[in-house]
């Protein structure tokens, strides 16, 4: 079972929820936590484990071979991402704009654009008891998260059984990386805060999940600040509110020290139990 933790707005508590939920479940069962916020992965600040495996990750980009180039300009015409431009007889490549679609390379009449691997980041795998933790991190200067997310998901699919519960910590927002993380999961937890900002971005995230036809529910974090607009919105839209995690200074203090929260704040543990019960219930309901 695959569960993504996404948000819309950044800083609402995705990682806090992901790390606490997985650590809690790992007390009883085998669980996998995958940090796919590859531009700034930080679940590793809270989850420590024994190093298992590391792999450099590559994407394929074209390389211009001037000697073979005629230069006909077909490559820049077929590139949907403006990653290739032609200036008189020179070809310029912007590898960070390239989506590795191979169009220029395959269609070049003189094969002057062979695809070569370029390192984009690395994936690391750790283990701590029942908890397997995998995180991927983009190299500095790399702009595209999607290929690294896709390759990390492939690793998860080939290395862990389908039955294991897997939590994917998604990046914030609603753009391509979030869609890559959430497009094929069984359930998406949308974490929000009860503020106008939180509500605004929650609506965008809900629209995205509806478009993707995902099962989803909302967790309100820092409940008690702001107002009730998020709860009202969820009620009007028939969106299940899985839990309300109270706003509590001690949670912030634990977080700031890189500690897990649920062992020390009983109210958080209660909410984690509630979340899992409801996800399993919604999941089973759907199976019937």
């Amino acid at each position: 079972m695959k569960i993504a933790i996404a948000s819309g707005k950044g800083g609402t508590g995705k990682t806090t929820l992901a790390t606490n939920l997985t650590a809690y479940l790992a007390e009883e069962d085998e669980v996998v936590l995958i940090d796919l916020d590859v531009e700034e992965p930080n679940s590793g600040l809270f989850i420590k484990g024994e190093f298992v495996y590391k792999e450099d990750k590559y994407k394929m980009i074209p390389e211009w071979e001037q000697d073979r180039c005629t230069p006909c300009g077909l490559c820049q015409e077929v590139c949907n991402f403006h990653a290739i431009i032609q200036l008189s007889d020179q070809i310029m490549l912007f590898s960070e704009l390239c989506h590795s679609c191979y169009a220029c390379s395959e269609l070049c009449p003189t094969s002057a654009l062979p695809m070569i691997p370029q390192k984009m980041g690395e994936m690391k795998h750790y283990r701590n008891g029942n908890l397997s933790f995998v995180e991927s991190r983009l190299d500095i200067g790399q702009e595209q998260a999607v290929p690294l997310i896709a390759q990390t998901k492939e690793y998860i699919d080939t290395h862990f059984s389908e039955k294991m519960i897997k939590f994917f910590d998604a990046p914030p927002g609603t753009s391509c990386p979030v869609i890559e993380v959430t497009k094929d999961v069984d359930f998406v937890i949308l974490v929000t805060e009860p503020t106008p900002f939180g509500l605004h971005d929650l609506k965008l995230a809900v629209d995205t999940m509806r478009e993707l036809n995902r099962n989803y529910g909302v967790v309100v974090n820092r409940h008690g600040i702001g107002n009730d607009d998020v709860l009202e919105y969820c009620q009007n839209e028939n969106i299940p509110v899985l839990a309300k995690i109270p706003n509590d200074r001690s949670i912030a203090e634990l977080y700031s020290r890189g500690e897990l929260v649920y062992q020390k704040v009983p109210a958080v543990k209660e909410q984690l139990i509630k979340i899992m019960d409801q996800i399993l219930e919604l999941k089973n309901g759907e199976a019937k």
Partner: peptide, 15 residues
């Protein structure tokens, strides 16, 4: 309507 690569594209036209 261009998500990425607006800079190189416009400069190419400019040149």
């Amino acid at each position: 309507h261009t998500a990425h690569g607006a800079g190189p594209k416009t400069v190419q036209k400019l040149l």
